[in-house]
């Protein structure tokens, strides 16, 4: 972009260049404004439902009927939070959910790391076929095998290996433990896929160096490969916690009877109507709606806190996990 003026055409080039420069600058400016508008707009769409949840969690019921109030309550109150806290039996439901999520996520992390490593680093016969089965488990919806699964856990006898009609595992943590530990938990297929891609991205030299130093395959895996894969492990663990925390299907189907956040939230409107309003027909009413919103905040808040705490891992690291490939 030289602006030296040549001798034979002294004045014609410069204005043309300037005009070009100006139009490029203008286009860049227009684009950055447009981009800002788009990003703010989409951000608004994302944050809008969360904002409704939070505002109504802090709003006294009277403000609902006050036409002058839409976003800013007349006064802030913690009554809704207290009420939802009590009706959801929050402390015990929270502990149950946290225990389930952490347990299942830890097991999923272990199984998916081991399985992903096997697929990434070993050229086994039939490996491609087995891996396509991993993908198959991803695309078959859980509803497909829900009823047989339920019956198998209800009368669990390892398909005839245990005597006397089997044990009832419904209502215990065992269905979650067994499926998570054997790579068949919630979206395990995706987690295996992530770990496989991650291990594929690690250099072969790393593995060779370990073998040269006399490490066997399992020592190599545990001492060399796993420590090198920590960012991937974090992503898998966080995904697993989030999905487990939010899932209501497994919780209501296999762990029924115990209190977990998703099913307590699902039951919140009914309990509010019966225990607080005292009228069974008030399940859809302004007050239950306030309490529902508050309950949603209570369920989401721990995850959002976790997410903000770990967002560097979530957003930055996943780009390096080699999720792409």
């Amino acid at each position: 972009m030289s602006t030296t003026v040549s001798a034979d055409r002294p004045l014609q080039v410069q204005p043309k260049l300037l005009r070009m420069l100006r139009s490029i600058k203008l286009a860049a400016l227009v684009w950055s404004v447009l981009r800002a508008v788009l990003i703010i707009g989409i951000g608004f769409i994302v944050l809008y439902p969360l904002l409704i949840n939070c505002v109504s969690a802090l709003m006294p019921e009277n403000d609902l009927y006050d036409p002058s109030v839409r976003w800013v309550p007349n006064r802030l109150t913690l009554d809704n939070i207290r009420m939802a806290w009590r009706l959801m039996e929050y402390p015990s439901a929270f502990l149950n959910s946290a225990a389930l999520s952490l347990l299942a996520a830890a097991l999923q992390l272990m199984s998916c790391t081991v399985i992903g490593y096997g697929f990434a680093r070993y050229r086994i016969k039939g490996g491609n076929l087995w891996f396509s089965l991993v993908i198959l488990t991803l695309i078959v919806p859980p509803e497909m095998t829900l009823i047989p699964q339920y019956l198998n856990f209800r009368y669990f006898d390892l398909y005839g290996l245990l005597p006397d009609g089997g044990i009832n595992l419904i209502g215990t943590l065992w269905p979650a433990i067994l499926t998570s530990a054997l790579g068949m938990g919630l979206k395990s297929g995706l987690l295996i896929y992530i770990m496989r891609q991650f291990f594929k991205g690690l250099p072969q030299d790393l593995e060779d160096a370990a073998y040269v130093d006399g490490a066997g395959p399992f020592a190599t895996f545990l001492r060399v490969m796993v420590p090198s894969a920590v960012p991937g492990l974090v992503v898998v663990f966080l995904f697993s916690v989030v999905w487990q925390w939010n899932d209501s299907l497994i919780v209501t189907m296999f762990l029924g009877g115990k209190k977990y956040l998703p099913n307590m939230l699902g039951d919140l409107a009914r309990r509010t109507a019966i225990e607080v309003i005292g009228d069974n027909n008030q399940i859809v009413s302004p007050y239950t709606s306030i309490i529902n919103n508050t309950g949603s905040v209570l369920v989401m808040a721990p995850l959002v806190a976790l997410y903000i705490f770990c967002q560097r891992f979530f957003v930055e690291t996943i780009e390096r996990t080699g999720l792409v490939g």
């Binding site: 199984s111 081991v114 399985i115 490593y117 096997g118 697929f119 680093r121 070993y122 050229r123 086994i124 490996g127 087995w130 089965l133 991993v134 488990t137 078959v140 497909m144 095998t145 009823i147 047989p148 699964q149 019956l151 198998n152 398909y159 067994l178 499926t179 530990a181 054997l182 790579g183 068949m184 295996i192 395959p217 895996f221």
Partner: peptide
């Protein structure tokens, strides 16, 4: 060794996928 690594998946797939699918 390779099969040992992917063994959890193979067991899980048989127990919690093939069998329930056939039952379904």
């Amino acid at each position: 060794t390779g099969y040992l690594f992917i063994m959890p998946f193979l067991i899980g797939f048989a127990l919690f996928f093939i069998v329930p699918f056939a039952q379904s």
